[in-house]
């Protein structure tokens, strides 16, 4: 478990101090995939670098398994970093070394014996699907292959934590999928805690368990991914969520009058996650509260491996009944958002 308390980072800039992070409080559970998302310049890059202290915070503490690493000196930090892996947007591999030699690099630094290095390389190459590339120099690889080398290198010293700095941002969509699958697989197989930063909501939706939204140096929302998708709080988070759920499309359909705004009643968006996606909620509401429900738009998707559905429903009937119906839907742990009310 990683606990970040009141973290602040200020850079001394030419035009006065620049605040990169402030009031950052996060709890990152062990063995989960934790995503940090935000627009560029929000501070996410700085934040992930404080977790292995490549960036020293100005104020605040970071506890890893109860130990405050902000109190560590360089020597202790080097020991700590050997137990953490990190992968990068631009891979940062050594061009002077082959694939196998790149994977060997962190082990050489940690003083692992030659035989053990060899054995570990043999184990890691098939894991990342690069058995036939051991002796290839890394400049001859594709982006996806380079990131696989990066992942193998990051896993070489059996870390408990893996930091991913925009690991898929330089890759095409197909390669991104493959790398995300690999990360998910590694997380499950080794029980590794993965912390990733990204600006793509798609990455969060695909593999993350929990997510923190960062904007202008502050965390604005932090929750489980399913909760964020069904019940987003701030407008920025709503925008992010809608961006991957055809949300924009729904809004456009309403704007263009293809989905008609009802003259009476209410237009609501209902989001289902997991189990509840299977329950006959709509028909139940209709029966119980004597309202009419007209489904205008439906969409089904998955968050990680959990099914996730969205419906846009026009509810008509007596006002009191509609309100009761909405309350009932809320009580069922289903996200509901009123889009329009006549």
């Amino acid at each position: 478990m990683i606990e970040i308390n009141n973290l602040k980072k200020v850079y001394p800039g030419h035009k006065g101090p620049m605040i990169a992070l402030q009031d950052v409080n996060l709890k990152i559970p062990k063995g989960k995939i934790f995503g940090i998302i935000g627009p560029s310049g929000a501070g996410k890059s700085t934040l992930i670098r404080t977790i292995n202290m490549l960036e020293r915070p100005t104020e605040g503490n970071i506890f890893i398994e109860g130990e405050d690493i902000t109190q560590y000196n360089e020597k202790k930090l080097r020991v700590l970093r050997k137990q953490m892996g990190m992968i990068f947007q631009h891979f940062n591999l050594l061009t002077s070394r082959t694939v196998a030699e790149n994977i060997a690099f962190p082990m050489e630094i940690a003083g692992v014996s030659k035989d053990n290095i060899k054995a570990k390389i043999k184990e890691l190459l098939p894991l990342v699907g690069l058995e036939d590339k051991a002796n290839t120099y890394v400049s001859n690889l594709s982006g996806g292959q380079k990131q696989r080398v990066g992942i193998a290198r990051a896993l070489a010293n059996n870390p408990k934590i893996l930091l991913c700095d925009e690991a898929t941002s330089a890759l095409d969509p197909q390669t991104t999928e493959a790398i995300l699958r690999l990360l998910n697989d590694i997380n499950k197989r080794f029980g590794l805690t993965i912390i990733l930063i990204t600006h793509e909501m798609h990455v969060i939706k695909e593999i993350c368990d929990d997510v923190a939204f960062i904007d202008s140096s502050r965390i604005i929302e932090s929750n489980s991914v399913t909760e964020v998708f069904t019940n987003p709080q701030s407008s920025i988070v709503k925008d992010f969520v809608h961006s991957v759920l055809n949300g924009d499309k729904q809004e456009r359909l309403i704007e263009e009058g293809i989905i008609k705004v009802p003259k009476r009643g209410m237009l609501v968006r209902v989001s289902f996650v997991g189990q509840s996606a299977g329950e006959p909620l709509v028909s139940e509401v209709v029966r119980r509260y004597n309202v009419d429900a007209n489904i205008l738009f439906g969409n089904i998707d998955t968050i990680k491996e959990t099914p996730f559905g969205t419906l846009i429903i026009e509810l008509t009937g007596e006002k009191g009944n509609i309100e009761k119906a909405i309350e009932y839907i809320q009580s069922k742990n289903v996200g509901i958002e009123v889009l329009h009310s006549a």
């Binding site: 020991v79 990190m86 940062n92 050594l94 002077s96």
Partner: peptide, 28 residues
């Protein structure tokens, strides 16, 4: 590339290890 040096630091390499195993071979 500064990123290569950062990656080495992230792996816990000491300045001497970075000089010998990263800077000099990369710039050979």
């Amino acid at each position: 590339d500064k990123g290569i040096i950062e990656a080495s630091r992230a792996m816990g390499a000491s300045p001497w290890q970075i000089i010998r195993r990263v800077l000099l071979p990369e710039a050979l």
